[in-house]
Design a protein around this nucleic acid. Structure first.
Length: 135
DNA sequence: GCCAACGTTGGC
DNA sequence: GCCAACGTTGGC
């Protein structure tokens, strides 16, 4: 299984919206690197859900329920979406500050390229973040 | 194919 | 709300 992280502004679509929706098409990614990451996701992969702009913390875990398919909201170009479903909230959200303060997480995409909206998370980093989240 | 200009993202 | 960093666009 692979691990990922997606970012969303809670005002636009936060983790509570995902819980309410039960399942959500992850639409609107218009960055090639992020798109390629979407395409690399497999059904069942786990996805950390990060709140950008407001919150600045990882609030919960989602999972991939449908692998990449063409983005129906794309008017032109070759874009993809996956379907995500909520798994559970972290007992405590893991803030960007905490992540930045961890030497082991220095290489994380979230720190190195804060503008990438879909990124892979190495196994060890994933486990550490869950631990930081009180799991 | 280079690079300046522009648009967008997201931390602060 | 500002602005730095990054990606994309388009003129040459």
């Amino acid at each position: 299984m692979n691990y990922w992280l997606v970012k969303s502004e809670p005002e636009e679509f936060g983790y509570d919206d995902l819980e309410k929706a039960e399942k959500s098409m992850w639409e609107g990614v218009r960055n090639y690197q992020a798109r390629n990451n979407l395409r690399a996701m497999a059904e069942g992969d786990q996805v950390l859900f990060y709140h950008s702009r407001q919150g600045l913390e990882i609030v919960g875990i989602a999972k991939v329920v449908t692998e990449a398919y063409p983005d129906p909201t794309a008017e032109k170009g070759d874009w993809s979406v996956v379907d995500l479903a909520p798994v559970r909230r972290l007992k405590q959200a893991v803030s960007l500050q905490e992540i930045k303060s961890r030497e082991e997480l220095e290489e994380l995409g979230l720190v190195r390229n804060p503008r990438l909206s879909v990124m892979p998370i190495p196994d060890e980093a994933y486990q550490l973040i869950l631990k930081m989240g009180g799991e």
